[in-house]
């Protein structure tokens, strides 16, 4: 059953950031690019997830046409929701490795706070002066969708007038290797674009998506390109995962999949760019009539995560 949201929410800015194709050198180049574009060499000291998150929000703000000085005016009414399966895992592992090698008294006091799951949200809040809600979901596969729903709810309940939503993960090689060698191994690196692989589960490139949300009835919005219109309840029929994965591959030019269930966010980002997903095999996920994209975020093969519904508004 689709529950229509009482207060409708517009996506006013979006950015999809895929920092790496393959290899550490590409990661480093991307990191340099971020630091240079944001004008702060100190960014390079942050966990990669924090860097990517800041960069994606920066780009989404540009896409939304938010003036650089505006954050100081609306800070108390702006918040951030982050959904991440792994959190600031790179820094956490660096911290834990030093602890394992050198003992409890040899750890780095700078790494410790930067290694918490909430660090990316904190850095975004600090950078743009967001004093509204600051929430980080670390649900594994449900992280991204729960972050999106929570952000919509902050707007609907009047707790915020604008929400930045960041979803994604940055993999540490130690975790990536363990995942690759664990029971997930046969499904790693799936590049098939067939929708028949709907039960497949794979990873693992770094991907971060940022969306900026506002209530649709905010008079300052001229042309809200995408609207989140409701949630599919948790007791819905099984939806298809394959089309979402395929769509994400198309929209991000990423031949692998991301962890943290980014499908909903990727679909919305796709709608933002005016690209529709192909029909999936049960016909539920998306349809495209050129100017009006309606989509349902496709779920995993269990029913525990509520789904999102959204549409691209006619311009």
């Amino acid at each position: 059953m689709l529950t229509k949201m009482e207060h409708r929410v517009a996506v006013i800015g979006a950015h999809t950031f895929v920092p790496v194709s393959d290899g550490d050198s590409a990661v480093w180049q991307q990191t340099q690019k971020i630091a240079e574009s944001l004008g702060q060499a100190s960014l390079r000291r942050l966990d990669p997830l924090s860097q990517y998150a800041i960069y994606a929000v920066h780009q989404a703000r540009l896409a939304a046409g938010i003036a650089a000085e505006e954050h100081s005016m609306k800070g108390a009414q702006c918040g951030v929701c982050v959904g991440t399966a792994l959190g600031a895992q790179n820094t956490r592992i660096r911290y834990a490795r030093r602890l394992a090698l050198h003992g409890l008294s040899a750890t780095n006091p700078i790494d410790f706070p930067d290694s918490i799951d909430g660090a990316p949200a904190a850095h975004i809040a600090i950078r743009w002066g967001l004093q509204g809600p600051s929430l980080t979901f670390a649900d594994g596969k449900g992280s991204a969708t729960n972050a999106l729903i929570a952000a919509c709810r902050q707007l609907a309940t009047g707790r915020a007038e604008r929400m930045y939503v960041v979803m994604g993960d940055a993999f540490d090689p130690f975790i990536r290797n363990a995942m690759a060698q664990s029971s997930l191994a046969p499904q790693i690196g799936i590049t098939s674009t067939s929708i028949d692989d709907s039960n497949a589960f794979a990873l693992s490139n770094d991907v971060v998506l940022a969306l900026i949300l506002q209530p649709l009835d905010d008079t300052s919005i001229d042309e809200p390109p995408v609207e989140v219109v409701g949630f599919l309840g948790p007791n819905r029929d099984k939806l298809d995962w394959g089309a979402a994965s395929l769509f994400r591959d198309v929209t991000t030019q990423n031949k692998r999949r991301a962890y943290g269930d980014l499908s909903g966010a990727a679909l919305i980002a796709g709608a933002w760019h005016g690209v529709a997903a192909p029909m999936c095999k049960n016909g539920l996920s998306c349809q495209d009539n050129a100017m009006n994209v309606r989509g349902y975020r496709c779920g995993l093969d269990d029913a525990r995560f509520p789904n999102l519904a959204f549409q691209r508004l006619a311009r």
């Binding site: 399966a85 959190g87 799951d117 979901f137 594994g140 449900g142 948790p234 525990r304 509520p306």
Partner: peptide, 23 residues
């Protein structure tokens, strides 16, 4: 942390709706 929620839901015999928050 999602694993923790899965585990709690199973052992405490709860439903499938769950969230994990870390602020």
């Amino acid at each position: 942390k999602g694993t923790l929620a899965d585990e709690l839901a199973t052992i405490l015999e709860l439903g499938e709706i769950r969230q994990v928050i870390n602020t």
